[in-house]
């Protein structure tokens, strides 16, 4: 009841990427890939820790990753890793005020075209997001070629 009264959007609103343009999609992907990488890291620690149970246990664990599903998960991990890194660099530079545009006098009708031209929603930011997505796609394709090749 208290939450409804405060009218906070909550996690569902935070995770909804649909309403506020490409930057919000990038924000959503960054969180999603971050959570995915955290899950992978935990799984990876579990996987590599099997070596303390001897070579047989280690080989058995390795066999799990050598399946089609295992390769698909690793391909996804490659994509998440590349996107998270590339977009993370964009965001980190932005956090220092680099590439976020220059203040200027807003012009009527104050639509977002000005912010897209000279403000924080500028083409460099959008280009960097698209480049991050493209790099992730390329890395995934290369990863698939290696994992599924021969």
């Amino acid at each position: 009841m208290a939450e409804r009264m405060s009218n906070r959007e909550g996690l569902r609103g935070m995770a909804n990427p649909a309403r506020y343009g490409l930057e919000r999609v990038a924000y959503w992907l960054q969180r999603l890939s971050g959570l995915g990488l955290l899950a992978y890291l935990i799984g990876h620690i579990y996987e590599t820790s099997s070596i303390v149970n001897g070579k047989v246990a280690w080989d058995k664990m390795l066999e799990l990753t050598q399946t089609t599903q295992g390769h698909l998960i690793l391909t996804l991990v490659i994509g998440m890793c590349v996107f998270h890194t590339a977009n993370g660099i964009r965001v980190m530079l932005g956090h220092g005020g680099i590439g976020v545009g220059k203040p200027g006098q807003p012009e009527y009708p104050y639509d977002k075209s000005q912010r897209s031209a000279t403000g924080s929603l500028n083409y460099k930011q959008r280009l960097c997001i698209w480049v991050s997505i493209a790099l992730a796609a390329l890395a995934m394709m290369y990863g698939m070629a290696v994992l599924f090749g021969d």
């Binding site: 506020y20 930057e23 919000r24 924000y27 965001v91 104050y110 977002k112 924080s120 929603l121």
Partner: peptide, 10 residues
């Protein structure tokens, strides 16, 4: 986290 939504709606 620089989602930019604030600038989108201003």
């Amino acid at each position: 986290h620089f989602a930019g939504s604030c600038s989108h709606v201003c």
